[in-house]
Every structure is written in structure tokens, then in C-alpha cells.
């Protein structure tokens, strides 16, 4: 009996020492997976996923606290990319988080703007130009369509305009029949 205890004790100590040494030798500092996940997200910082921005959502996904189908602006392509990276099953967008819509940018109706700067403070990417009592304008190239400027505006003078399709950003449609409708993609339209 004593032999057993001694032998196992010795073995355990030896292995423990080895592992301890390995733990120090192979210490890992940071967690780059969060950054990799964040790189796949559309950066609208809109909060529709239920988190306070894209980085918190990415962190939650890295920790397994959030599902991959909570981002409406990212749409199907983001879900597929996340499924690929995290080795999970792709699934349809969670309707509780919102619906995927065509890309829109904000437009301020200038005759109604009162220069209150509330929308400027709300914009997460500083895409609104203006100052107190001065005209406010949305820089359309930087606007991500997150809708966060709409609630603060006291005179409701901001409209969301769908982005035009031009020859520059036109995409060939997928051919008529059977773009894969199931395990990889859910909406046959893209």
C-alpha cells in the first residue's frame, strides 16, 4: 500500500514539475482571437446584437457567451464567415436582433436642422460634421448606417436613404436556379 502511495506520489510530483516548467516556458500573453473575430464584423457599432459595440460582441463570441447570428448589418456573409472561423454550424439571422436591410446612409434635412450637436455626439464614427448653432452634415462616405443618430435628434430631421446601385458597385446576380439554399446559406437571394 505504502509502495503504491509512494510511487504515485513520485510520479505525480515528477509530472507536476514538468507541467509547471512547461506552463512557464509556453506562457501565452494575449488573446488575438477576439481581434480576428472583430475583423469579420461590419463595425457599425449599432448595438443591435445586444452588446455595446462590435468589440464587446466579438469578445462575447470568443468566450462562447454569444451566438454567431446576432448581427443584422453583417447579414448572411458575416454569419458564414464567423461559422467558418469558429467551426460552428451556420444558422439564420436571429430575428430578435433585427432584420438585414439594404445599406443606408443618413441624410440631414438641412432646412430643419437646429444645430443642437446631439447627433454629432451620438455618431460612433464621427461621421457628422458641424458645431453648435452651425449646420450639421453627414459625411456619407464614412456613415455606416447604424441609425444611432435618429433617436437623439429633437426635430427628427434625419432620414436614412438607401445607397444607390451604380455600375461601380453592381454585382452579378447568382444564376437562376439553386444557389445552395441550406447548410451554407439560407436566403436564396443574396
Amino acid at each position: 500500500m505504502l509502495i503504491v502511495v509512494l510511487v504515485f506520489g513520485a510520479l505525480a510530483t515528477a509530472f507536476g514539475a514538468l507541467l509547471g516548467f512547461a506552463a512557464i516556458r509556453f506562457k501565452v500573453e494575449s488573446d488575438p482571437l477576439v481581434d480576428k473575430i472583430d475583423a469579420l464584423l461590419p463595425q457599425t457599432q449599432c448595438g443591435q446584437c445586444g452588446f455595446a459595440g462590435c468589440k464587446p460582441y466579438a469578445t462575447a463570441m470568443a468566450n462562447g457567451e454569444a451566438d454567431i447570428n446576432q448581427c443584422p448589418p453583417g447579414g448572411e456573409s458575416t454569419i458564414l464567415a464567423l461559422a467558418d472561423m469558429l467551426q460552428k454550424d451556420a444558422k439564420p439571422l436571429n430575428p430578435e436582433n433585427g432584420a438585414h436591410s439594404v445599406k443606408r446612409v443618413a441624410l440631414i434635412r438641412e432646412p430643419h436642422c437646429i444645430g443642437c450637436t446631439l447627433c454629432i455626439q451620438a455618431c460612433p464614427v464621427d461621421a457628422i460634421l458641424g458645431a453648435a448653432k452651425q449646420m450639421h452634415t453627414v459625411i456619407s462616405e464614412e456613415c455606416t448606417g447604424c441609425d444611432l443618430c435618429l433617436p437623439p435628434c429633437p426635430v427628427d430631421c434625419i432620414d436614412m436613404i438607401p445607397v444607390d446601385v451604380t455600375i461601380k458597385n453592381w454585382k452579378w446576380p447568382a444564376p437562376n436556379q439553386s444557389t445552395r439554399p441550406d447548410t451554407r446559406s439560407f436566403a436564396v437571394s443574396s
Binding site: Q43, P124, D126, W170, K171
Partner: peptide, 29 residues
């Protein structure tokens, strides 16, 4: 199908560039 794939990939690359720029602006803010 190949044309569809090519334009989708170009659109995704454009989106990626935009979202990278948006992330930079957000972090700067």
C-alpha cells in the same frame, strides 16, 4: 457563377475596407 463570385468577392473587399476605416474612426473617437 464565376462572375457572381468575382463581384461578390469585390463587394466583400469593399465592405471590409469600409469597416476597417469605420473601426479606425470609432477607436479614434
Amino acid at each position: 457563377y464565376y462572375r457572381y463570385a468575382k463581384t461578390e468577392i469585390w463587394a466583400q473587399e469593399r465592405e471590409k475596407r469600409k469597416s476597417d476605416a469605420a473601426r479606425q474612426r470609432f477607436e479614434a473617437r
